[in-house]
Computed example of a mutant assay.
Amino acid sequence: MREHEAIHADIDERGVATVTIDRPEKRNALDPRMIVALRHTVERVAEARQVRVIVLTGAGAAFCAGMDVGVDAACSEEELITSVAELIASVDQAGVPTIARVAGPAMGGGLGLAAVCDVVVASTDARFGIPELRLGLAPAVVSLYAARRLGRSVVRSWALTAEHVPAAEAHRVGLVDVLCAPGELDDRIKALVDAMLRTAPQAARTVKRFLAAQGGPSGDDIRSAVSMSSAVTAGTEAGLGMTAFRSKQAPPWVPRE
C-alpha cells in the first residue's frame, strides 16, 4: 500500500526492490509528506524477507533535486530537518545491499540519499551539488553523511561554493562508483544486481548490519546538525532566499553586475 502517490516500490520475483521517487515534473524534489513516505517505504522494503537488493531511482530525467523549497511545510524547521535526517539514516541502515541509479540532478538531500547507498551508478548526464547556501539554508545533515564518503575537504568545497558538479568529477572524487553513458545505465544496474544476487542473502544482511555500525555519524552529531540547520532555516537569510527563489530573482547577497 502506497503512503504517497509519488513514492512507490516494486519487488520482482528475484527479490529486487525498485523504490522510485515519481515526481518528474518537479525533478523528483521531496515535499514533507514524500520524505516521510519514502522513509517508511525504504524501511518496509528492507525488512521484507524476500527482498535481497534495493535500487533507489527517480522517474524521468532526474534522480532527486532535494527538498521542494517552494512548498510551505506544516511543521517546524526542526521537525522537517529531523525528518530528512531520518530518511537518509533509513537508507544508510537498510539491511540489504542498496544501489543508487542516478540520472540528471542529485542535489542536496538527493545527493545525501545517493551518498549512503552501497553503490552509486550514474550516467554522464548526472550532476551533483549541495546548493543550500544559495538559499540561505544550511546543509549540515547532508554534509555529515556525504563527508563519510567524500571526505571533509571535498564536502567543504562543494557546500561553500554550492556549485553543480558534473558526474565525471563526482566519479573522480569517489561519490560515483560506476559512470556510464545514459543508454548503458540500466545494463550496468542489471550487472550489479546480478552480482549481488550471487551473494548469500543472510550473510549479506549480517555484513550490512556490521558496516552500518562502523563510522557513521553519531546521534550527537546528527542532533547538532539538526539544531544548527534549524536555526539557520529560521533566520532572516533563509526567508530572503526562499522569497527570491519563489519569485525567480537573485537573493540580496548576490553582487549586482
Rank of each mutant, 00 (worst) to 15 (best):
R2K: 15
H4R: 10
I7F: 07
H8V: 01
I11N: 04
D12Y: 05
R14T: 04
G15Q: 07
V16P: 02
T18A: 14
T20Y: 13
P24D: 06
K26L: 13
R27L: 15
P32I: 08
R33K: 15
M34L: 05
A37P: 07
L38N: 08
R39D: 01
V42I: 13
V42R: 05
V45P: 00
V45W: 05
A46T: 09
A48F: 06
V51P: 07
R52A: 05
V55N: 12
A59E: 00
G60W: 12
A62G: 03
A74G: 04
C75A: 13
E78D: 13
A85Q: 09
L87P: 01
I88Q: 06
A89E: 13
D92Y: 14
P97R: 14
P97W: 09
A100D: 04
G110Q: 06
L111G: 00
L111I: 04
G112D: 02
L113S: 01
V116T: 07
D118G: 11
V121T: 08
S123D: 10
L133V: 04
L137I: 02
P139G: 06
R152K: 12
S153V: 08
V155I: 03
A159C: 04
T161Q: 01
T161D: 01
E163D: 09
P166T: 03
A167S: 01
A167Y: 01
H171P: 00
R172F: 09
D177I: 07
V178P: 03
P182Q: 08
G183N: 01
E184Y: 04
D186M: 10
A195I: 03
M196W: 13
M196Q: 11
Q202L: 10
K208H: 15
Q214L: 11
S218Q: 08
D220A: 13
I222N: 13
R223D: 11
S230Q: 09
S230P: 02
A231N: 03
T233N: 11
T236D: 09
A238M: 00
A238D: 00
L240K: 11
G241F: 08
F245E: 03
Q249G: 03
Q249I: 00
P251C: 10
P251V: 09
P252D: 02
R256D: 07
